[in-house]
């Protein structure tokens, strides 16, 4: 375990045994999470990502393999030690799961009551501090049923942070929220990460969540990690089929599937002012069909990508490729149905 690591997952597998026999949820997962980073885990539903996050805090005990958290091998701990370790890992959920019979304030106090090491005054001060952090001081005495979804998730975040955890696990934390509220929760998570340096692990099926806040990402598909890397790298040069699908979602933009040659051109912000495609068609004397285009903000950089269909004339194709090479743009020829 290196000094920069907070969590290391080694050779982790998890199977469930049900009526249909063994169901493999995770197989041979290796991951290393660095201190202070926002790490994303993306996959389609059923890929095993929720099981993975529950294996990190041992809500689900892995069938095989190890989870090393802050130097401790969780599989070696007894129940009481495990509960102690969990206090250093906050968790928030898609369904918020606040205590319905407690006020927002008393929800935030709960983990401190459980830990039993805070006196009443400390608890009150800490809870108010957290209410300020999530911007809901005026809602201290409101019950969850009186709060909107976004407000409930903010209280859940405050509650998860109450005992100063080193890691915050987010299990589809924004999936039940509308886009605007999702944005505000994501920027709250980003603020918290920068202000108090807590490591955040975000489980999601939405690429935009990863793009917006994560530093690194793991792509999980059918119980396996298929790709890990910096978000920008994975976005620019996705290696796995599933990553490509997640980046360019099915049914978005492109309707016609052709058998012809297609290029995915990526603009990483190095040539911002130049109208690349217009110049390309003019100088190559060849028209291209734009099938999909989008720009994203990845970690503060404007990054765009575009899928174009090449003309049938092979010399025109060659001219276009040469032009793109000359401009040092990253492009990759793709089979169109990888994306659509």
């Amino acid at each position: 375990m290196t000094e920069r690591e907070i969590i290391r997952i080694e050779d982790l597998s998890k199977s469930f045994y049900g009526k249909q026999g063994e169901v493999v949820a995770l197989e041979k997962i290796d991951l290393s999470i660095r201190k202070g980073e926002i790490f994303g885990v993306i996959g389609l539903s059923g890929a095993g990502k929720s099981t993975l996050v529950r294996c990190i805090n041992f809500l689900e005990r892995p069938t095989q393999g190890r989870v090393i958290f802050d130097g401790k091998d969780l599989s070696q701990l007894n129940e009481a030690e495990l509960r102690l370790a969990r206090r250093s890992m906050g968790m928030i959920f898609q369904g918020f799961f606040l205590f319905a019979q407690r006020t927002a304030f008393r929800n935030i106090c709960f983990p401190m009551e459980i830990a039993g090491v805070y006196d009443k005054q400390q608890m009150q001060e800490r809870a108010m501090e957290l209410l300020d952090l999530v911007g809901l001081r005026e809602k201290a005495n409101a019950y969850p049923s009186q709060l909107s979804g976004g407000q409930q998730q903010r209280i859940a975040i405050a509650r998860a942070l109450a005992t100063n955890p080193k890691v915050l696990l987010c299990d589809e934390a924004t999936s039940a929220l509308d886009p605007t509220t999702t944005q505000s929760i994501l920027s709250l998570l980003q603020d918290i990460n920068q202000q108090i340096g807590v490591t955040i692990i975000i489980i999601t099926h939405e690429m935009r969540v990863i793009e917006q806040v994560c530093h690194r990402v793991a792509v999980i598909d059918q119980s396996h990690i298929v790709e890990v890397g910096e978000v920008k790298d994975v976005f620019l040069r996705p290696q796995s089929q599933i990553a490509k699908q997640l980046i360019l979602p099915r049914g978005e933009g492109v309707e016609q599937v052709t058998g012809e040659r297609c290029l995915r051109i990526v603009f990483d912000g190095s040539t911002p002012a130049e109208p690349i495609i217009s110049n390309m068609t003019l100088s190559c004397q060849a028209a291209v069909n734009i099938l999909f285009a989008d720009t994203k903000n990845i970690a503060g950089n404007a990054v765009g990508h575009m899928v174009v269909q090449l003309p049938e004339d092979e010399t025109a194709q060659a001219r276009i490729l040469a032009y793109l090479d000359g401009k040092k743009l990253y492009y990759k020829e793709e089979r169109l149905h990888d994306y659509v």
């Binding site: 805090n57 809500l59 009481a80 495990l82 509960r83 102690l84 370790a85 969990r86 206090r87 890992m89 906050g90 968790m91 959920f93 369904g95 799961f97 606040l98 205590f99 319905a100 019979q101 407690r102 709960f110 983990p111 009551e113 459980i114 830990a115 859940a156 509650r159 998860a160 005992t163 696990l169």
Partner: peptide, 25 residues
């Protein structure tokens, strides 16, 4: 069940779960 899981994720013991979560909720 989600509320119970949330409480468990905070390191709640079985007894605390009964007295501080199940009965009050």
């Amino acid at each position: 069940a989600g509320v119970i899981e949330a409480a468990q994720s905070m390191g709640t013991s079985a007894l605390q779960l009964i007295t501080k979560v199940l009965i009050p909720e």
